[in-house]
Amino acid sequence: MVVGKNMTVQNSISAEELEEIIILIQRQYGYDFGDYARASLHRRVIRCMQKAGCLTAYELKYQLTNDHRFFAWFIESLTVNVTEMFRDPSFYKELRQNVLPKLASYPAIKIWHAGCSTGEEVFSMAILLHEMGLLSRTRLYATDLNPANLDRARQGIVPLQYMKDYTANYIQSGGTNDFSAYYTARYENAIIHKEYRKNIVFAVHNLATDHVFNEFQLVCCRNVLIYFNRNLQNRAINLFSNSLTPLGYLALGMKESLLFTDVRHQFEVVNPAVRIYRSKR
């Protein structure tokens, strides 16, 4: 390897080495990252190597093979877990004004948050449902591939430092209550009150390998498909399509779409700006 004067040898891996690592993870532990988009996965692997002090792909593979605790840490750090409460206020506004009022006609409401990370999104939804008087007859299923995220989500803990931003988001989304009434501040954390979390079921579910497990009137999968290639996006959207009740809603992230999926014609666009779709079947 030729090293230019400013180039660092540290923590770099080639595209081929990345493929080897993906295969190793699949063979050894059964996690399938084969259809993840490579550009971000590559960055994530290098980031893990930096944190772990692995200099070469060889070292990383050695550790992954021989140290199960290292592997567990690696998977937890590999996925992008960043999330926010009331992220994209215009999305929540649309839920409030047009989607949830439609769901109000059902005696029992079921909503699935796929790729819920540490729970901020599903907590936001629970607050909306509460404000619309629907929470008590709604069951929210929040799933993720990463068990560490779910452990955190179950505790209902959100870092206090972000609450100012989240309050602003909440207000922009059309919220008129005192946002601080939804949580208790304790040291560095805000703990979302239990009454807004008791209808949430957290569970592990892998969109790359797991199947339909229930039926929902609304599926939210935001900022998860961006980590998948078109093939896996198609799998996930089919899974959602098969999990929706007739005329059920599907909500994606602001830059995600059905464009590259074979079921795109089975959906109508409810609001293109915030990527809410509705099953025609």
Binding site: A15, A37, R38, A39, S40, R43, R44, V80, V82, R87, N223, I226, Y227, G253, M254, K255
Partner: peptide
């Protein structure tokens, strides 16, 4: 580049968005 996402390029010259740190 859309706000609040990193903008990445895949080897097949398509865009990938990323919501990491």
């Amino acid at each position: 580049a859309p706000q609040n996402y990193h903008l990445l390029i895949e080897a097949d010259k398509t865009f990938s968005l990323d919501y990491s740190e």
